[in-house]
Design a binder for these strands. Structure first.
Lengths: 230, 230
DNA sequence: ACAAAAGTGTTAATCTTACACCCATGT
DNA sequence: ACATGGGTGTAAGATTAACACTTTTGT
């Protein structure tokens, strides 16, 4: 009874990036194997002597050449026995955020191609990656309201209007500018810099930055980041 | 590179029960193997042709003879390479709730013994089960505030005071009786019955029941269960 | 001068918190 | 009559929601 198990374990990463007021997902098209010429999430099999975390980071590096700002375990998909046509695979999915604006994707060892796709222009995906992606999108939406993960999708210094648009875009709702600014500033974890953005038109706007250390300190003392708007 | 993987995949269940104003956890002591004479979570290896969900339910049945009221995936523990001394094991942990008051545990095929332990009187646990348990406890605490999972720990009909004590116990804080009752009743998902509890002393109290169908309907319309008290 | 985006305050409504006394039963 | 737990309302304070005009720059 003990050792007859023949199940493979993989990790997959849903990497979200944000650019041009759009939420993007990182997909790759592999050179070899069953996945040849199909778009898929970054991912692969776990090595015997490597942690799940190391496996994801390795795949992210090998297949797309990136380091992410935020990474957490999302869900383990293992109820679909025919997920992978080759053999039973259980996939531990991870959820990752990057500031994609200036991110250069280099298709490295395993990948033939790596590209950002806006969420509303997705190609057909391999396996059950479509449904994994939906789970991830829901997670992102809810995380946004109770953890300061939005900043991981923006450059270190950003305009308030960018932060606001990010929230509107991802949560798919309108947000009142004044109330949003008031609320965010009331937390005391976003600071004004001396610099200004470089938009072409309109009144110049100050750049802001997120103070992660301060957030951690406050969070330990019981502070709860929380944004909820009608 | 493809198929040399030698990792075993297991499921474990953290089953919480509630009785006598205490939160309990279901632990088992196995007959055979490395786990002989050690208390551990219900769990075991996944079969090749069985979903993760089926695996957990099977183990719950085989090792403790129970059906749970609530079951959800908790987290996949796979970063500790030496978790199991025999070989690399990745464990998908599930989180389960039962009304344990009248639950008869029958040690079935695999288990030598199955018992409820109050959270503050735990024995030493096998593997990394102690830390899995802590993750589960945190999950329970937070779930309690944004999903009506408390009802899954109580009998179908319960006293308001029982519900309140359950919240106090699990969240480890004092709650104002009037505010609590007002809040819960305002949701409209808990209904008065005609029956009364059978406490020995004090004024007789009505039994209430949770209307799950109504909750589901409301939840679909955007209703959010939410309990937060200082 | 006009277009474009940034910046800013107030008020009404709602929700949350704090708090204490009477009620129905068993002994 | 007393002990035990059940049941109830209100007022002050905090938070949220709704709402529109002025400012600064480039063209």
């Amino acid at each position: 009874m003990e050792l007859k198990q023949n199940i493979k374990i993989a990790v997959d990463a849903i990497v979200f990036g944000y650019a041009d007021n759009k939420l993007n997902v990182l997909l790759i098209k592999q050179k070899y194997g069953v996945l040849k010429n199909k778009w898929a999430l970054v991912g692969g099999f776990v090595k015997d002597d490597e942690t799940l975390n190391d496996a994801v980071n390795r795949e992210l590096h090998e297949e797309a050449g990136i380091k992410v700002n935020y990474l957490e375990q999302l869900y383990t998909f293992g109820d679909d026995l025919d997920r992978d046509p080759r053999f039973r695979v259980i996939s531990v999915a991870y959820f990752a955020l990057v500031n994609s604006t200036k991110l250069v994707l280099k298709a490295d060892t395993d990948a033939e191609d790596a590209r950002w796709f806006p969420l509303d222009e997705l190609p057909a995906l391999a396996f059950d990656h479509q449904s994994i992606l939906q789970t991830a999108q829901k997670r992102l939406q809810s995380k946004l309201t109770y953890q300061p993960v939005g900043f991981d999708l923006l450059p270190k210094e950003f305009l308030f209007s960018e932060l606001e648009t990010l929230y509107c875009t991802i949560l798919e709702k309108e947000i009142d500018r004044r109330n949003f600014r008031k609320k965010i500033l009331s937390f005391g974890i976003v600071e004004e810099t001396e610099k200004f953005g470089n938009k072409k038109s309109g009144r110049p706007a100050k750049l802001f930055k997120f103070n992660g250390l301060k957030y951690n300190k406050l969070a330990q003392e019981g502070f709860l980041f929380d944004i909820n708007f009608a």
